[in-house]
């Protein structure tokens, strides 16, 4: 009796834990941000693009002239990319906003 009850408790805990981990994963997945990846120029850009995709980075642009890629991923994925060979930098995309058109002084 005791063993069966204990087993049920364990099973229940395992289920809860699984659900929690699923929730954590979902949260991380939903917090996808835009990133700018700068390469070192030592590796073929297409290879880098494939590696990024494998890591879960959604590549949007491959800018061959300047050796940069843009796209979206979670913070965790972006963090992992920083230690990948051929990657010089991974920075969040930044917004640019000129002052309103009727403003006499601009950027």
């Amino acid at each position: 009796m005791f063993t069966r009850g204990f087993f049920i408790v364990l099973l229940f805990q395992a289920l809860v834990a699984d659900q929690q981990s699923a929730i954590t994963t979902n949260t991380a997945m939903s917090e996808s941000k835009k990133w700018i990846v700068t390469t070192t120029g030592e590796r073929d850009l297409d290879e880098v693009r494939q590696d990024l995709t494998k890591k879960g980075f959604k590549v949007e642009q491959v800018l061959d002239q300047i050796g940069c890629l843009t796209g979206s991923a979670s913070e965790e994925v972006a963090h992992q990319l920083r230690s990948m060979p051929g990657i010089a930098d991974v920075s969040p995309d930044a917004d640019i906003q000129l002052p309103p058109a009727d403003d006499p002084v601009t950027w």
């Binding site: 949007e60 800018l63 995309d93 930044a94 917004d95 640019i96 000129l98 309103p100 058109a101």
Partner: peptide
């Protein structure tokens, strides 16, 4: 409206 992103500027 004078707005953009770094990704667009880099492109």
């Amino acid at each position: 409206s004078g707005s953009g992103t770094m990704a667009g500027v880099l492109a």
